[in-house]
Every structure is written in structure tokens, then in C-alpha cells.
């Protein structure tokens, strides 16, 4: 059978048996979806590639845990969100480039962005949004990224994070409150 036409279940079974080419096919099949997910977390190409790669390595390591009752794509997406969450935890708080004129950080930020050759017009706003959200704790950042940018329902956020739905709702409410304060601080209207 042609590996392209094989189902995820068949490919996973082969990969579990040690067939790396079957896993290659899974990577080719799903890397677009995973990179689109993680792009909301990290728009820089080089970091994004690392995150996508990490997601697949984690998936291979946990392949024995996947149950065919749930779609492989959903399971993989959940791993991607966890990878994004880890990335938020690792990445330190960075100054926001949206600071009002005259602030010292504005000039420093401009110099930093001038040095960066990988920044492109295509993801300028995502970059700005993430710089703004980087002022918040990793959990809030994950929640707002998934809910606002990825447009995922709270139930899915709860499933991806392992939090209960009620806890996710409370956290979402608090995260939105913190975001509102942040927007006020930088004179950004809602």
C-alpha cells in the first residue's frame, strides 16, 4: 500500500513497530497544521521550526499512549499546545515595543528589531500581540493565545491543559482582566 494513502492509525502502528519512514509520512502529513498552531505562540521562523520539531519528537516518544478512539490530529495538536506552553514558561518577559513615545524601552526595542533580519511584514502583528502577552504569566498567555488567536473554545483549552472546565473559565476571566489592565497601560483600546 502507498504510504500516502495509509490512515493515521496504520501509520502509527507501523511507527510503533519501529518503522521510521511511517513516522516520516505522519510528519509530512501534519507539519503544516502543527506549524499553523504554533505560529500563534512563536512567529519567528527559526524558533517555530524548533517547536514543530519538538512536538514531533514528543509525539514519537509518547506514541504508545495514543488511542485510536480519538483522532491522531487532535492528539498531536494537544502535544503542540503543551510545547507552546513550555515555550512560554521558558521565554523570559520581554519589553513591549508598543510603549508610548519617549519611553526609554521604545528606543532599545527599535534597535533590537532593527538588528533582527528574520522579522517580516507577514507576521508583524502576531509578533506585537505576543510581545504584549509576554508581560503575562505563561498560563494566561497560553489561555489568551488559544482562545483569542487560535479561536479555540474553552472546553478545548481545558482538554489541552488538563484543567477542569470550571478552572479554565475562572482562569480565563482573570486573564482577560489582566489583559484589560495591560491594554490600558499601553493606551490600546479594546
Amino acid at each position: 500500500m502507498d504510504s500516502e494513502s495509509e490512515t493515521d492509525k496504520q501509520l502509527v502502528e507501523r511507527a510503533r513497530d519501529g518503522d521510521l519512514s511511517a513516522f516520516d509520512t505522519l510528519v509530512v502529513k501534519h507539519q503544516g497544521m502543527i506549524s499553523r498552531c504554533l505560529f500563534r505562540f512563536c512567529p519567528h521562523q527559526s524558533d517555530l521550526e524548533d517547536l514543530v520539531q519538538d512536538t514531533f519528537i514528543k509525539a514519537y516518544r509518547k506514541l504508545h499512549l495514543w488511542k485510536p478512539t480519538a483522532p491522531f490530529e487532535n492528539w498531536l495538536r494537544r502535544i503542540a499546545y503543551n510545547t507552546g506552553h513550555d515555550y512560554f514558561r521558558r521565554s523570559k518577559r520581554t519589553p513591549v515595543s508598543l510603549a508610548s513615545p519617549g519611553q526609554e524601552s521604545n528606543e532599545l526595542e527599535l534597535l533590537r528589531l532593527e538588528d533582527r533580519t528574520d522579522i517580516q511584514q507577514e507576521y508583524q502583528t502576531t509578533e506585537q500581540v505576543q510581545q504584549l502577552l509576554s508581560e503575562l504569566p505563561a498560563d494566561d498567555r497560553l489561555l489568551l493565545t488559544m482562545h483569542y488567536l487560535e479561536e479555540r473554545p474553552l472546553a478545548e483549552v481545558a482538554e489541552a491543559t488538563g484543567w477542569s472546565l470550571s478552572k479554565t473559565k475562572v482562569k480565563s476571566f482573570r486573564a482577560k482582566k489582566k489583559l484589560r489592565k495591560l491594554l490600558n497601560r499601553y493606551d490600546i483600546s479594546e
Binding site: 507539519q31 506549524s35 505560529f39 512567529p43 517555530l48 521550526e49 520539531q53 507576521y123 500581540v129
Partner: peptide, 16 residues
């Protein structure tokens, strides 16, 4: 931001 999309990523060889 929702209208922005990433450049194509190919991590097949790196993962392998």
C-alpha cells in the same frame, strides 16, 4: 494576527 500565516515549514529530515 489571525490573517497572518507562517512560511512553510519542513522538519521531516530534522525529526528523522
Amino acid at each position: 494576527s489571525r490573517n497572518e500565516s507562517p512560511a512553510p515549514v519542513d522538519v521531516r529530515y530534522a525529526v528523522r
